[in-house]
Design a protein around this nucleic acid. Sequence first.
DNA 1: GCCAACGTTGGC
DNA 2: GCCAACGTTGGC
Length: 215
Amino acid sequence: MPPKKRSRVGGKAGSSGEDGQHKSSSVAGKKRKSEESSPDPPQYARWLMKSEPESRFENGIDVKFGIEDLKALPEQTSCWDGVRNYQARNFMRQMKEGQLAFFYHSNCKEPGIAGLMKIVKEAYVDHTQFDKKDVHYDASSKPDNPKWSMVDVQYQRMMKRFLPLSELKSLHLQHRAEGGPLKDVALFTRARLSVQPLTAEEFDFILSLEDEEPL
DNA sequence: GCCAACGTTGGC
DNA sequence: GCCAACGTTGGC
């Protein structure tokens, strides 16, 4: 889930092409409009990206990468490598320079939204897929047709207060029952996705929570 | 550490 | 192309 380390900007630009396809559901000959398909995916402009702020060793490598680690890098910028899920990858490929993303701390003592970052480089090839030493090496991906992409992100700021998952969850449940902006938020409806889109309404509502008293 | 949810893989 | 087995995510 978490992406991880790596210092600042990584390789060269370019995004690799193609997209894999992932769900299908399409009928032969017919087009399936609503969602899915690559032609025109809904346009999202705000994101939530998960990473683990506490040490955890995978194949002997520490995958820890919290918001403080991002902040400490040169230019407070890092590539977001290691995403190995097609939906998460496809969302990264939709990201545009300048868009904002919440930095979410997962798999830790206190999960929740820690801060804000900005997309500073659009999707390009994640080089770690070819690195046998890397935790996220993917033997099935070939350099002439890379499977995985990453973006570069830059630290913007910490939230004025940490927004715990527990609080977001009670709001989600409340909104689901009575209506409200977090009714369908991906954090709970697509819990395992490490890169998620947020509607403007969801994003703005979550941002407004930092000025509220903790629940 | 447990385990539910869900994505991926591979046999058929 | 189905679906059971398996692997991963991530809260608790």
